[in-house]
Simulated assay, not measured.
Amino acid sequence: MKVICHIGHPKTASTFLQNTCAQNAGWLRGHGILYPDMLVPDVNHISLLYACANYISVFARDYGIESLEEAREFGTKLSAHLRRQIDEANGEIHTVLLSSENLTANISGPQGVQNLADFLSEIFDEVRILVYLRRQDDALLSMYGEYMRRGFGGMTFDSFVDEALGNTVMVPYIFHRRILEFWNESFGRDRVTVRIFDRDELVGQDILTDFFDVVFSGNPPDMSQLRRSANDNTGLSAPALEFLRQMHPFISYHWNGKPNPLRQRLQGRIETLPVEPRARLSREQSERIMARFSSANEWVRTTYFPDKPAPLFPPRRREDPTSNLGQITISEFAQFTGHMLL
């Protein structure tokens, strides 16, 4: 039995892919692929993180996991649950498909990756890892938007970048070489498939087409009957991000060490703030970020894409070289405040 474990990265349409797989579980089953239930009420197989990470995630406590010993017991339960689903398929499947971006965002170092390798190798004869890499300037901009949307911080974008570049834990998946070395060591370089999350690099210029090109080993079936999930993870506009940054002291995610009930009540309104104009980096911001990763990205290119011209992520041609981050008019501030309250 073969397993393909898609590990993200975050902000590379992982939620869209997971929702589409779950909504088309019957279609996949008809082509020999099982997208299993993994003991969580979510199509993201985050339970793999709970079972294999070398620490206790705050979300794992919702499943009664308070210690590493209990995490290993949960892993045994999860393994049995997965085996049961494979057995119930009665030989109709040849591949299990797993997906969780938390395996790159949160698994936290080589021991967690090795724990996952051990978990999978006990069940499957063949293990394949799939990961999508996003250029670091886009990834940081996207994650900054997530921080503002969720109320995790009130930093300016430049301060956010400074902290992220100096801290491999804050946004770990921008450190492509570091993460890939962990996975190569535990699974072997030949078992790790790396794709570039860029429309021009994707098969058919489409993430779903590219994803199934990997899953079906370059020979995907007719996808005309496939129901695509809505891609509803669109980021907020640049003025909306600045509004949330300035409002952070009053509606932060945490309050006195606990989730802020006020933020929770307002989250639905926050989600419907405008999405245009899109946030945009300046040429200087983009070049600064990409220069930080130039040598590491060159390692990725020579290791996984030796026939691809350097650099791994070419400079962007921008019609407007300026940024629109950190800008909001009084009128926009009043409009967003009314939207939150009415």
Rank of each mutant, 00 (worst) to 15 (best):
V131I: 08
Y132F: 11
R135D: 01
R135K: 07
A139M: 03
L140E: 11
L140Q: 15
S142Q: 05
Y144V: 14
G145M: 10
G145A: 10
E146H: 04
Y147K: 12
R149I: 02
G153K: 01
G153H: 03
M155L: 11
M155N: 13
S159N: 12
F160D: 01
F160Q: 14
V161I: 14
A164P: 11
N167I: 05
T168G: 02
T168M: 04
T168E: 07
V171R: 01
P172E: 10
H176I: 01
R177I: 10
R177Q: 14
I179R: 12
L180P: 11
E181W: 07
F182S: 04
F182M: 02
W183C: 00
N184H: 08
E185M: 05
F187G: 01
F187I: 08
R189N: 10
R189L: 05
R195Q: 10
I196P: 00
D198N: 12
D198S: 12
D198C: 09
R199Y: 15
D200C: 00
E201C: 14
L202A: 08
Q205S: 07
L208I: 08
T209N: 12
F212H: 02
V215T: 09
S217A: 07
S217H: 01
P220A: 02
P221R: 07
D222W: 09
L226E: 08
R228G: 06
R228Q: 13
S229L: 06
A230S: 09
N231M: 03
D232Q: 10
D232F: 06
T234L: 04
G235C: 07
L236Q: 00
A238M: 07
P239Q: 11
L241K: 01
Q246H: 02
M247L: 12
